[in-house]
Design a protein around this nucleic acid. Structure first.
Lengths: 190, 190, 190, 190
DNA sequence: CATGAATGAGAATTCATTCAT
DNA sequence: GATGAATGAATTCTCATTCAT
């Protein structure tokens, strides 16, 4: 049995990765076949060979990004065994401590802008959000899950642009308040 | 009596407005001098006469957008006379009822993506955020203000992409929980 | 008697001077109305007001340059009272000691390139050369004058591009040889 | 047997040649991608495919010119077997009899103007001059070589602009004087 | 399969030129 | 007289796309 496809996914993969690199580095606004080719270290013809349509290429690259980020997010939450651990995980995520550079939030912003106009990606994002909430819902009631999920988004964005980002303690205090809404409900209040 | 002078505000303004129209309509990714000129109904040379640099044009247009949105936001909050009215205003904003079309959230996403790479705009966004919080802080304690502000962001985004957006009552419940954090503190609890 | 022309030649003059500045700074290849206006510190409309034709403007500017340089050259020679002084003056000129920067040779090269295609300037250059030779001919025989004049040109150009320009003594030795041709003739040889 | 392949040397070469044609015909001041493309008989996109930068194109074209002229010059001198033949060759060159049209001097003037601002070309010109002198130095002492070389430049230029160019005999007389400097030195005189 | 060459369309800019004031 | 506004025509340069090999 001869393996005659030395790197079947290799080339295509590398191009998709490079596309995200270009988006991270220069913005979706500056993405071109040429720049992707340069970033991937492959000839221009190679990019157009694998991808007839630049929008499709970006959609695929962004889809991959969304799935990766979503998977990380869920993994983070699923590692939690107790509600307390889950709460800490959420606070971690909101604090942005998981991000090593500006690359991730930057890519996220580009993703939203691009996805808003790409039905295919809107579906992907919708699934992502659903998955996130499901992961949260293992520890919290559905509405709290959605509120936490939204807060993750909000703090991420604000912390990115804010010169004086919130500290972990403050974030924890806010999260605690949302969790108490949950408890308040189960206590029979409201 | 017909006013046939080309409008006192003039060309420059019209071009900036048109630029945002193009961004809203086709995305920043597709903005070109030509498309802006077409949208503004002015000759191409007219656009380049007022703006030597396309990036600069976009920066200025987005700055104007940020200031407009920020002003609306503040006006909304400052109209509130009591904490209850303020709470309702916040819930309104989170529900997206103020938005008449997809145009506003779309522009916002583009704004964030573009601003992330434009120091000048990052400063503008930072001011915007500060102003928002100050407006909220007239009714709530500082941390609650920030949490609410972040939640606005998060719900806006999620409601845009989610097929089943949250209803007003659910949002109100979440907001209430954050406000009780505030009260809880002043009550000496926790 | 009222003087109602505050600076009649001022504006026009300044533009011509600025044109040469642009040529010196960026090369005739990059001369435009706009750059001249910027260099002169006058509005664009002002340049086109005074000069309908860019080529004519350059021709006039170069004419002025040629006349200035030629005048300097002649002044240098006419200050000489004896053949020895004249010889020293020529050697000085060849050594480039009169030039304070690269500006002068640079402008000269541009002048030749431009003049080669501009009949009006060719005439100017021809006059210049004639005047130079006449100045030299007050001290040397006509052919020697022409040879010296040519040598000035040649050494100037070579010294500009050569990393190891000739020293004054070497130049003096060469000039001396040409002068002895003169003497040899008057001695009856040939 | 017809060779219908598009010539082995190919497009790139043809474009460089065409560029010099445009410079010779209209001056460096009027060189554009379009004019070069038209002169080369290739589509505009073809020129920009091979040359990203117009300046670089011109630099390369002028480099080629310098090397060609320099090679001709050296060939002319190296064909000489005796000092007498070398002297005659030099006089020929100074008389401009080798030039078949105004094209060569015109290109030379443009070359100097352009090279003066292009470090890469200044290096090329420096090499050219060194090579010229080396060729001359096979027959004459070094200083005489430099003087002759400069004189070539000077007479070329003056003969181009002068309505009454020098005759061959006059030039020969001047050259002879320089050669006698050489001899005078070896004779121990002066 | 893959890619270098090639090209036509279009992009950002620059510019000469015109003209109302 | 002088100039700011305005514009249509290039100009440089970038790109998507095609295609022969």
């Amino acid at each position: 049995m001869i393996q005659d496809t030395p790197a079947p996914t290799g080339r295509r993969d590398r191009i998709l990765t490079a596309a995200l690199d270009v988006v991270a580095e220069e913005g979706a606004i500056r993405v071109t076949y040429r720049r992707i080719a340069a970033a991937a270290g492959v000839p221009l013809g190679s990019v157009t060979y694998y991808f007839d349509d630049l929008n499709q290429l970006l959609t695929e690259a962004f889809t991959r990004l969304a799935e990766t980020v979503s998977a990380h997010y869920r993994a983070q939450l699923e590692a939690a065994r107790t509600p307390e651990e889950a709460r800490d995980a959420v606070v971690d995520i909101m604090s942005g401590t998981l991000w090593t550079s500006e690359r991730d939030p930057l890519l996220t912003f580009e993703l939203y802008a691009f996805a808003a106009r790409t039905p295919e990606l809107r579906t992907v994002l919708n699934s992502w959000m659903r998955a996130s909430r499901d992961a949260l819902a293992r520890h919290f009631d559905p509405l709290t899950a959605r509120a936490l999920d939204a807060l993750v988004e909000g703090f991420t964005l604000h912390n990115f642009f804010d010169h004086t980002p919130l500290g972990r303690d403050d974030i924890a205090s806010v999260v605690q308040a949302l969790l108490e809404r949950d408890r308040g409900i189960s206590d029979g209040k409201k």
